[in-house]
Design a protein around this nucleic acid. Structure first.
Lengths: 133, 133
DNA sequence: AAATTCAAGTTGTATATACAACTTTTTAAA
DNA sequence: TTTAAAAAGTTGTATATACAACTTGAATTT
């Protein structure tokens, strides 16, 4: 065999992302929100009012994934969506408040991850991003 | 802010694994099987007859994920499961045949990924594994 | 040996993801 | 301007994943 199973890039990256998500979920436990949804809220916090598609573009998420998440976030009154055919999305005040509470929690999770990864590990992620696109 | 959103380790690793999986899915398209299921078949090919739990242990997959995948693989007659309370799993002949066909295809995907990653990128993955566990 | 505890497996529920099919609206082409 | 093509959004279907609750058989304790 040219490669061994344990070298499989796909399953290894899948596993790594599960581990990282686990750390984030731990600090998110109390907030009834998922990592992915948190990331979308943070994105909207940075971008302000944008087209729904912009979110997927920035986070490299599939349209359908964004669509379903937006629906969930809207139901929880964290985001507002214009009714136009191609809706503009933005955080509601409740959404902004939540983001402000979540940021320090997210930073705690990042602290843990960065402590594990060190400068070297962070550079490794950058390297992978540069190489895989 | 101590960190920027774009530094979020969780979403970045999630994204990287989606990209890698995409490459693997491309070559798997014709085979009506998923990356994850393929990985389980390969694992069984290496391990021979094992307890179901062993698969999850090796691949760091949750019990319920393994349980459902095993059921799918059994339905397709690629694996055989003993009826004991804690079943032993092994590939069927059809499963072995499939693995033999899949290996060269998987190697093609690995070639593409390794070409992108280079020695440096592979080292980066190892580094992350060492640091994240 | 009976009772308790533990470990593995299964199932329910919710979200994440991919991809295909479809709708709607815009843009481009004729 | 009418038509064709493209782009964005939605929905259906299937798998992946996490976590909790439950089941069952095994191991340990009393």
């Amino acid at each position: 065999m040219k490669y061994q199973l344990k070298h499989c890039v796909g399953s290894r990256l899948r596993r790594l992302s599960r581990i990282a998500d686990g750390h984030i979920r731990q600090i998110l436990g109390d907030f009834k929100i998922t990592e992915n949804q948190m990331t979308i809220l943070f994105t909207l916090h940075e971008l302000g009012k944008v087209e729904q598609g912009k979110v997927g573009e920035v986070l490299c998420l599939e349209r359908s994934t964004v669509s379903r998440n937006i629906k969930l976030l809207e139901k929880r009154n964290w985001i507002f969506r214009t009714t136009s055919y191609r809706p503009q999305i933005e955080l509601t005040e409740q959404g902004i408040d939540l983001v402000k509470v979540l940021i320090p929690e997210w930073e705690k999770a990042m602290d843990v991850l960065v402590e594990h990864l060190r400068e070297d590990g962070l550079q490794s992620i950058k390297n992978l991003e540069a190489r895989l696109g």
